[in-house]
Nucleic acid binder design. Structure first.
Lengths: 215, 215
DNA sequence: CGGTCTGTTGACAGCTTTCAACCTTCGTGG
DNA sequence: CCACGAAGGTTGAAAGCTGTCAACAGACCG
C-alpha cells in the first residue's frame, strides 16, 4: 500500500468522500470511496446494504482459522454484491485498488425491489457454480486460462486486460499458490499466448489458444 | 441401477406418477417421481420451472468436454433448486435415488413470487460460496469431514447419515477421485471417528473429532 | 451360483506446494 | 536525479498430496 493509499484509508475508510456533494450523499446515490486494501465489510458484521462498484474492483473472501483464504468473487465496474441470507455477513469484502462504491440500504428500498434483485442474485449464483467446476475439476493451466478469458469478457472483450489485483489475489481466487500462478503466466508468455506489458496488465495475443486451454 | 429402478425409469421418467390423484396433478402440486439416475433436466434445455424435493435426493452438475464432472450441489428433502438466469439450463439435474419432486412452472406463479424466491436463491448462493472455500483451500480429509458434517446437519443433526449417493458422486462433489474418498473414509473409520454400517450409511461416532478435522 | 457394479487397497506417477533465493518495480528521501 | 528499501513477482529444487492404474473384495440381483 502506498503512502497515498494509507492516507486515503485513514481518512476515508468507510466514509463518504464526495466534496461538494453532501446533498447527493444524503440522497444515498453518491459513491463512497475506498483506498486499495480498505475493508468494505467484515465477516460477522451486521448487514443490510447492497453495493455497486462504480470504479475500481472488489474482492469478497472467507478465511480459515489458520489464515488460508478463498476469494469467492471479484466484482468489477457495474457489478452488485453484498447479498446475504441473514442478519450478518458471512464474508469479507475489500477494495482491491482505489474504488468507488454506491451503497444502498436494503431497508430503505421500495417494495418490489426483490424482483429486481433476483436476477442479480441469480447471476452471482451461476457465476459461483461455474467457478466450482474450475476449482473442483480443472488444473492450474485451465484455471488461469479460464480466469483470463473471464476477466477479458467482463472488461468488454478487449485483448488488453487490467488485472488490478496481485498474484496472491489470483491464487486465492483460483485455489493455487502464487508461485503456481506465476509459473503458468510465464509458460503462457513463453508460448506466445499472452504478453505481460506490466505487472498487472495482460495482453491476450492468441485468444483461441487460451480457449483451447480453458476447455 | 436395479431392475426395479430401470422399470421406473422407462415408465415414469419425467412423467407424473401419482395414481388416483390426477386432479391434484392438474393443480400442479402433486410430486413427480424419478427413478435413481433419471434426468430431471439437462444443460441447454429450456427452463421455466422450480423444483422442490419431496423425498429422495438430487445432484446438480456440469460436465467438461472430456467427461470430468463437477457436482455443484446435492439437494435433499425440502430443498428447492432449478434457479436459472436465462431461458436455458446451465446444468444437469438427476435423481440420485428414487425421488419425488414437486415442479412449479414459474410462468404460472403469482406476481410477488420473486420476493419469496429471493431467500432461497440466496441460500443456494451462500452454500455455493462456502463450497468454494472447501474446493479451493481444503485438503481431502477436511473436505470429507466438512461434507459429513453438512450432510448430518441437513438431515436433522442425527449421527446416522444416509448418504444415498455413490462414492463417485461424493468425489465429483468434493473435487476428489473415488479412491481418495474411499481412503479418507477408511482412515476416519480406523481412527474411530466414524462407522460404516453399510455402503451409503455413515455413523458419526465422534462429532467433535470431525469438527476439528474440518478446520 | 455367476455376473456386474461398487467399493477398497496398494504402488507409482504427476502435479502442485513449500521453501528458498533472486529479481523487478515503485515510492521515498537524500 | 539517483540510491535505497519494501513489496510484489519469478524461478529452481525438493517434498507431499492426490490421481491413476491395477488387482481384489463385497454386495446385489437374476
Amino acid at each position: 500500500m502506498t503512502v497515498h493509499d494509507e492516507i486515503l484509508t485513514s481518512f476515508h475508510r468507510r466514509a463518504a468522500f464526495d466534496p461538494g456533494m453532501a446533498d447527493r450523499r444524503q440522497a444515498g446515490d453518491a459513491p463512497t470511496f475506498f483506498a486499495a486494501g480498505a475493508e468494505i465489510y467484515a465477516q460477522g458484521e451486521k448487514c443490510g446494504s447492497l453495493y455497486t462498484v462504480e470504479f475500481g474492483a472488489v474482492r469478497v473472501y472467507r478465511l480459515l482459522a489458520d489464515g488460508r483464504r478463498q476469494i469467492s468473487a471479484f466484482h468489477l465496474v457495474g457489478e452488485m454484491f453484498g447479498f446475504e441470507t441473514d442478519a450478518t455477513h458471512h464474508f469479507f469484502a475489500e477494495a482491491i485498488s482505489a474504488t468507488g462504491i454506491r451503497i444502498q440500504r436494503t431497508t430503505l428500498l421500495h417494495g418490489d425491489f426483490a424482483s429486481a434483485l433476483l436476477p442479480m442474485a441469480l447471476q452471482s449464483l451461476v457465476r459461483a457454480q461455474e467457478h466450482l467446476l474450475v476449482l473442483g475439476r480443472q488444473n492450474a493451466t485451465e484455471r488461469v486460462a479460464a480466469f483470463l478469458l473471464d476477466m477479458s469478457e467482463r472488461q468488454g472483450g478487449l485483448r488488453r486486460i487490467d488485472l488490478q489485483m496481485a498474484r496472491a489475489d489470483i491464487g486465492d481466487y483460483l485455489g493455487l499458490s502464487i508461485e503456481t500462478v506465476s509459473r503458468v503466466f510465464s509458460r503462457l508468455r513463453q508460448k506466445g499466448i499472452i504478453r505481460l506489458p506490466n505487472l498487472r496488465g495482460v495482453e491476450i495475443v492468441r485468444p483461441q489458444a487460451l480457449e483451447d486451454l480453458a476447455a
